[in-house]
């Protein structure tokens, strides 16, 4: 097990190096640059732009810039944002909380609701509930998130005035109630897709389990249905979901992007979008490395957890 983990970690680190090189190249080769924003407002002459470009080291050959960036990153210096001058790690850190709040809430809703829908759907396969859940899930997976978010704002904020039309909090309020009030709409919008996905996976996982021999054996033994369900079926059905969760976790970062834009949520997604828009190279690279690490960590953890949870599986 230790060797397996060590091997996987080594592979992951090599992958990160490759990802960083590809990402750096794509980003810098893309037309436009961090100075376009200043050129657009025409307050700086070409001479000024050239000087700032030199001062930022953007006039050096790309491989040199990459090695410089890479070397610094190894020493823990991820560079400074071109926009607000903050160091990249703290810039990311300052946006992480908001995204985490949104993601965690949406995930909890999705896991609870999705599991319930999935299990019930599997137990009563082809019932009205199952059909409605299936159709509902498919539609939820098919609606563009930004469209759903805008409609939600229009209905619940503009027309009904029940919920605030975005933002993480009322500035200067700071109460828990205020935070929750702001969280409802974006969390539900984000949870919609997650719930649908989780429900679908849960259903098929559960279907697989309840047709297994040991469940039939348990039934034949006369063990009560609820006990079979909680003790045997559910436990085994949840196992593959660990993998799903591990793989799903990083995509939540991206999925929150659109939700964050629509609901003015100061999270990672917005930061990423703005940083790409302004070509804030250090921050984009920082987020890229951060999310790549999350992806690799997610799949690694999922595999390890899976092995720990199910002793029948031998990894390696």
């Amino acid at each position: 097990m230790a060797r397996y983990v060590a091997n996987r970690v080594a592979q992951a680190i090599m992958l990160l190096v490759v990802v960083s090189a590809i990402g750096f190249a794509i980003l810098h080769l893309a037309p436009g640059g961090p100075l376009s924003q200043y050129a657009a407002s025409a307050q700086m002459t070409q001479e000024d732009l050239d000087r700032v470009s030199r001062q930022l080291g953007l006039d050096r050959p790309l491989p040199i810039q990459y090695l410089d960036w890479f070397g610094r990153m190894l020493r823990g210096d991820w560079g400074h944002s071109y926009r607000d001058g903050g160091d990249v790690l703290s810039v990311i850190g300052s946006h992480l909380g908001a995204t985490f709040e949104l993601m965690a809430t949406a995930t909890i809703i999705a896991v609870l609701l999705g599991s319930w829908i999935g299990v019930l759907g599997a137990l009563r396969r082809y019932s009205l509930f199952d059909t409605l859940a299936t159709v509902g899930a498919m539609i939820a997976l098919s609606i563009p998130t930004f469209w759903f978010g805008l409609v939600a704002i229009y209905v619940f904020s503009v027309k009904l005035d029940w919920l605030p039309s975005g933002n993480q909090e009322t500035i200067g309020d700071g109460s828990l109630l205020d935070l929750l009030h702001h969280l409802i709409a974006p969390a539900l919008v984000l949870a919609l897709v997650e719930t649908a996905m989780w429900g679908r996976f849960m259903r098929s996982s559960m279907l697989e389990v309840i047709n297994q021999d040991y469940i039939r054996t348990a039934r034949a033994k006369g063990i009560p249905e609820w006990r079979i369900l909680t003790r045997h079926a559910l436990r085994n059905a949840l196992l593959p979901m660990i993998t799903v969760a591990g793989l799903q976790f990083p995509t939540l970062l991206g999925g929150a992007l659109v939700t964050e834009t629509v609901f003015t949520w100061p999270g990672m997604g917005r930061l990423f979008l703005d940083s790409i828009g302004y070509r804030d190279y250090p921050v984009v690279m920082g987020i890229l490395m951060f999310s790549a690490t999350m992806v690799l960590l997610g799949s690694l953890l999922a595999d390890i957890l899976y092995a720990v949870a199910d002793p029948r599986i031998r990894v390696g």
Partner: peptide, 12 residues
């Protein structure tokens, strides 16, 4: 084009 592209060399 996106702002970062058009107002760079393309325009200048």
């Amino acid at each position: 084009m996106p702002a970062a592209v058009i107002w760079g060399d393309y325009w200048l």
